[in-house]
């Protein structure tokens, strides 16, 4: 018997909990740092993006309707499952050009981010919510709610930790997400999808669309059922005509340093709801 031939992986999209190829049938070739072939990554089309938004919308009310405790446990489960598969992620990061030490450090960071945000699920409301001392006989309080479906344009680097730094705060409050991962290093995003699919995250809560950001962005910004878009990982010199697409439904357009973590990274994707009720006998 000769040397064993290794199994090459087909890197597909992640939509509604399933792993379809792009309906367009198109792919982009990813090569390793040494120039050798690694994989054909699916090149998402406008139709794929619409399917992903539909899946995200379909999953949103259930995700938001779960208890904060439950969402926290599911995000923590992401950390548990990633921890067990960290060597796979490290190999992929190294394939895409990271040093082994950088890859290991990025995995530490990526996994700890899930833990950090898992803990926020049932706490940020107490930090940013208020009971308001209005001048009248009313009980009045303000609570954060998820804005709905959020498009996340993940930073190019670090491709895994950067993606999680922007995705996790979106999920904390009960939003669902359509993610456009790093173009230069998309492999770990696909493997992350496989982790998501086995971590109790309901189908449709996170959807992953690999492909050229500049192709996907106008469709994402123009989609009327997307409530907010995180442009942190998008070029800063975007054509204003592309940004114009966002005003069709008054999208919340966010950019925030991925290193800036905490309740405000969560409330970027929240709406504040204020409720009044009279006090009387």
């Amino acid at each position: 018997m000769g040397e064993r031939l290794d199994i090459q992986k087909t890197y597909k999209l992640f939509i509604g909990g399933a792993f379809p190829r792009s309906e367009s049938g198109r792919t982009t070739e990813v090569v390793a740092a040494d120039g050798s072939f690694v994989a054909n990554v699916a090149k998402a089309s406008r139709k794929d993006l619409r399917d992903a938004v539909k899946a995200a919308r379909g999953a949103q009310s259930d995700w938001a309707g779960r208890t904060a405790y439950n969402r926290g446990q599911i995000l923590y489960r992401m950390a548990e499952v990633m921890e067990g598969r960290r060597s796979q992620f490290e190999v992929e990061l190294v394939t895409c050009g990271s040093s082994a030490a950088d890859a290991a450090a990025e995995l530490d960071e990526a996994i700890d981010l899930w833990v950090w945000y898992a803990g926020w699920c049932d706490k940020f409301q107490q930090v940013v919510g208020t009971v308001n001392p209005v001048a009248g006989p009313f009980f009045n309080f303000t609570v954060p709610e998820p804005t709905g479906v959020v498009g996340v344009v993940a930073p190019e680097q670090p491709s895994l930790a950067g993606l999680i730094a922007r995705l996790a705060p979106v999920l904390v409050s009960g939003n669902t997400a359509v993610v456009i991962p790093s173009e230069v290093a998309p492999l770990s995003a696909i493997s992350l999808s496989e982790t998501i699919a086995t971590s109790d995250v309901p189908g449709g809560v996170i959807n992953m669309l690999t492909g050229p950001k500049l192709d996907l962005l106008p469709w994402l910004l123009g989609h009327l059922d997307v409530n907010a878009v995180d442009l942190t990982g998008a070029p800063t010199d975007l054509d204003p005509a592309v940004l114009d697409e966002a005003v069709g439904n008054v999208k919340r357009v966010i950019r925030r340093d991925p290193a800036d973590r905490g309740p405000y990274a969560i409330t970027d994707f929240c709406e504040m709801k204020t409720i009044w009720h009279p006090i009387g006998r």
Partner: peptide, 18 residues
């Protein structure tokens, strides 16, 4: 809705986000 009035309506106050 950003403001929900229950058993009242059109109440405003500086301390109440709108």
């Amino acid at each position: 809705a950003g403001i929900v009035w229950a058993n009242t309506y059109n109440q405003f106050d500086p301390a109440s986000p709108f």
